[in-house]
């Protein structure tokens, strides 16, 4: 059983933000009080109530305008580095059927900062008041009931795909081959290590700093990129035991 995965084809994302709202609708998460700061990316970042956010990045390359869109979310790593930031064995659980990395009531007992800083993708967010740490749970409830995650169902263009990991990997490889014709620099991001496989049309860094696993400790992180990837590379089956 290799669980589930997302395949996210960024060549097709229009940043309609249907996924950003569909996530909040399903989970009934509140909207945030924001201001326009000169960008369409809003809320400006992930938060404990914004578990996915569409990142907007404008780049002019060789005189040609590009607008890169990244619906950012937890990658549900095959061997989740955030587990290394936890002290209790079951405060971060992995659903054996789907592979969803799920925070639960015991996660609250952990050091939120330790968990947060161990994520190579800078995803988990801590509620300032309650110190509760949050992130995407793969809509594990929906998935177990045979539905698509809310974000995937809401996607109009085929950017967000979800299914058995093997099928998603195959889809990703096929899509990469097709994308190469139009975008020679297209690539898959960390596809062997994560359950949210992004296909970029250009270098991942053009989308956002943390689209690819963090290149090195930029803050009080427990993991370097090398360490994180070494950890990620462990065979998934072995991890599940």
């Amino acid at each position: 059983m290799s669980g589930k995965s997302f395949f996210v084809d960024l060549t097709k994302c229009t940043a309609c933000r249907g996924c950003q709202v569909a996530c909040k609708q399903w989970k009934k998460l509140p909207g945030e009080k924001t201001r326009n700061t000169g960008s369409h990316q809003n809320p400006p970042d992930l938060s404990d109530v914004t578990l996915r956010v569409v990142r907007f990045s404008e780049k002019e390359i060789g005189g040609k305008m590009h607008w890169f869109f990244l619906p950012d979310q937890c990658r549900h790593c095959l061997d989740a580095p955030c587990k290394s930031g936890a002290t209790l064995p079951d405060s971060i659980i992995v659903d054996p059927d789907t592979g969803a990395v799920i925070y639960n009531e015991k996660t609250a007992k952990e050091s939120a900062e330790a968990i947060r800083s161990s994520c190579p993708y800078n995803i988990p967010r801590v509620n300032k008041k309650t110190k509760v740490i949050s992130k995407c749970d793969m809509c594990n409830d929906r998935v177990k009931a045979g539905k698509l995650p809310a974000c995937v169902q809401s996607c109009p263009t085929g950017t967000m795909n979800f299914g058995d990991r093997d099928a998603m990997l195959a889809l990703a490889k096929k899509a990469l081959a097709e994308a190469k014709a139009k975008y020679p620099d297209a690539q898959l991001v960390d596809e062997e290590s994560v359950r949210v496989i992004f296909l970029t049309q250009d270098k991942p860094g053009l989308y956002a700093k943390n689209l690819m696993a963090d290149a090195g400790p930029t803050g009080p992180r427990l993991y370097t990129r090398q360490e994180a990837l070494a950890s990620l590379a462990r065979p998934f089956r072995a991890f599940l035991g």
């Binding site: 933000r17 945030e32 201001r35 326009n36 809003n42």
Partner: peptide, 26 residues
């Protein structure tokens, strides 16, 4: 228009899920 609002904004400005994405006149 923007994706997150609609027409005069009356049917979108009151929804925090949309207002957070495009909160102000730009």
């Amino acid at each position: 228009r923007v994706t997150e609002h609609w027409q005069t904004g009356l049917m979108t400005r009151y929804q925090p899920w949309l207002l957070e994405a495009e909160p102000q006149m730009f």
